[in-house]
Each structure stands twice: as C-alpha cells, then as structure tokens.
Simulated scan of single mutants.
Amino acid sequence: MSRVVRDTRGGHLDQRIGTVRSEDELGELAKEFDVMLDKIEQQHQQVLLAAELLESKVDERTRELSLRNEELQKTIKLLRATRQQLVMAEKLAALGELTAGVAHEINNPLAVMLGNMDIVLEELGQNAEPVAHEIQLVVEQIYRIQAIVSKLLLYSRPNDYAGFIEEVDVNRVVDEALMLATHIIDESLIHVHTACAATERVSLNAQELQQVLVNLIINAVHALEGAGGNLYLSTRNWADRGVMIEVRDDGPGIDAEQIGKVFNAFYSTKQPGKGTGIGLSVSYGLVKRYGGNITVSSSPGAGASFRVWLLTQPQVDDDELALVERLSAMEEAG
C-alpha cells in the first residue's frame, strides 16, 4: 500500500493495491483506495481530454481570427483603392465639364492670333527678319496651347474622339512605342530591356495605346535623366481577362505623397517647360475608356512601375461608380 501511495504521489495513476485477502478494516481500506484511484485516473483522463479539446478550439479560433484579420486588411486596402479611383473619376468628370466649356473659347482667340501672325509676316516681309525667331516662338507656343486643349478634349468628350477599334497585338505596339521614343532614349545612358510574353489580343485603338506607352516611356526616361539606369518593358497575359503591360524603371522612385497625385491633371514634378502635367491624366482617360486601368507602385530609391491593365473586350460604363467598382475588382485580381 505504501508503494502505491508513493507511485501515485509521483504521478503514476495506473498503480493499484490489488486483491487483499484480509477481510478486516485494512483490506476494506485497500479496496476503497483502489476505487478512489480509478476515479482519480478517470477524472485525470477527462481533464487531459478537455485540455486537448480546449487547445484545439483555441487554435481553430486563432486561425479564424487570423483569416478574418487578413480579409479585413484586404477590405481596407480595397476600400482605399476604391476611394482613390472614385476621387480620380470625380476629378476627371469635373475637368471634363470645365474643358468642354472653355476649349471653344480658347481655340477661337488662338485661331485669330495665328491668322494675324500670318498677316504680320506677309506685311512686314523682309523687315520681319530681325524678329523672325521671336515670331516663330510665338507661333510654336500657340500650337502648343492648341495641343494641350486637344489632349484635354480627348477625355473630356472621349466618345467624340474615339479611334477605330481593332484586335491589337500589344507586343507589336510596345515595339512601335519604343521606336517612337528612340530619339529620347538614345540621348540618355539608359539600357532598355524587353520581355514581351503576352499572347492574348485586346480590342482597342492601337494608336491610342501607343500614345499611352510612349508617354509612360518618356516619363521613365525623364525619371532616369542624367543618372543612366535601366528601363524595363514587359507584357503578359492577365488570367482570362486580357493583358498587362508594365513600364518600369530603377530611378529615384516616387514618394507616397506624390504617388497619389500622378494622375491629376496639370500635376508635374518636372522642371518648368519640360511637361504640361496632363500626360498621365490623358493616358488614364484613354485606358479607362476601354474599361481598363493604370496602376502605379513605387518607393523612394526603388524606381517606379506603371502597369496598364487591358481587357480583351472593351467594357465602357457611363456610371462612374460602376467603373470604380470594376477597376477596384481588377486591381484586387491583379
């Protein structure tokens, strides 16, 4: 009996006194002691089982909370992206209304100015030679104003300026855009790398896509200006939706404050005279017209990446909110 007591104290609950021949109080005590040990072991097993069950439930609950936290983070990210897209849509709508009303009033005086400059040159003849350079500058700036107004009209009334839609091989458009930007690239110390793997075709206007890519390439070259670096252009299929085109550089990058403004009209970080600040706005409007999207990711010192997401078949929404919802879904899927 003493041995069983010592073993039980040491945690060995499977020890028993066993059958005792004695019928006196000592024998009865041994039997009751074994019964008590049986109950203690049973309760111990129940405690262990309950502890395992509790631990399992805690682990399961922890996993559920972790999954919900991940879903919450995704939802917050999606809400932020949706809000950004909605703000951009509202800005474009407001700019479209402003541009449509002002463009006509701007173009009329410009036409008068050009006409009168022709008259001045004709009347002065040889006498205009001393100021010929200044006159040429005036004419060039007038044409520049007209080009800016035309670009603004391009997405203030996109349906009026929509080009011919056809099935387009984006890889070919990338090559053509690079050729158009060759003169700028050659003047720099930039190395161009291409990886065009997209096999899907998309339906849109090839010249408009070319305009978007040329603008992104020129912006990347300007970001690398004076420092050399690398410019990467790549394409790939985008699940069963369409294609994605990426224009990436390893330049100084864009900080968090600027990255939220890059698609704003007239916003530019370039030096005066080197940009109007509407190139990315126009590009955004062109891609949006076909139900696509342009996203940007960057951090200071790590370069910038602009991705153009294009649907195989264009989807145009008049409802800005519906457009925002689809763009947000596209961004999440990408």
Rank of each mutant, 00 (worst) to 15 (best):
H104S: 15
L86F: 12
V138Y: 06
T194L: 10
I119C: 02
S305K: 11
Q207A: 07
A94P: 06
L137T: 14
N219P: 00
R248Y: 10
T75K: 11
I17P: 03
H183S: 14
S305M: 10
R248Q: 13
D249G: 10
H12Y: 05
V170G: 03
K261N: 13
D250F: 04
I254T: 08
N69Q: 15
L121W: 05
R6M: 09
A94K: 12
T99Y: 07
R83V: 07
S150Y: 09
S2M: 08
T75H: 13
Y284V: 01
R289T: 03
L78K: 14
L13Q: 00
Q126V: 15
D255W: 09
L180P: 00
D59H: 08
N230S: 09
E208P: 04
M244F: 08
Y143E: 12
K57G: 05
V247G: 01
Q136N: 10
R241G: 00
A227I: 07
E105T: 12
A197W: 07
A223D: 08
E122R: 11
Y232K: 07
Q15T: 11
R61H: 12
L224A: 00
G253V: 10
S234T: 13
I278C: 06
D175T: 09
D59W: 06
L310K: 02
E23N: 12
V20E: 03
V287W: 01
V139T: 10
W238V: 01
I142N: 08
T312D: 02
I185L: 07
A162M: 04
V212D: 00
I76D: 09
A177C: 05
R307T: 14
F306C: 06
R63I: 05
K261W: 10
V287S: 01
R307S: 14
R3C: 10
S268V: 05
E122G: 09
A329S: 05
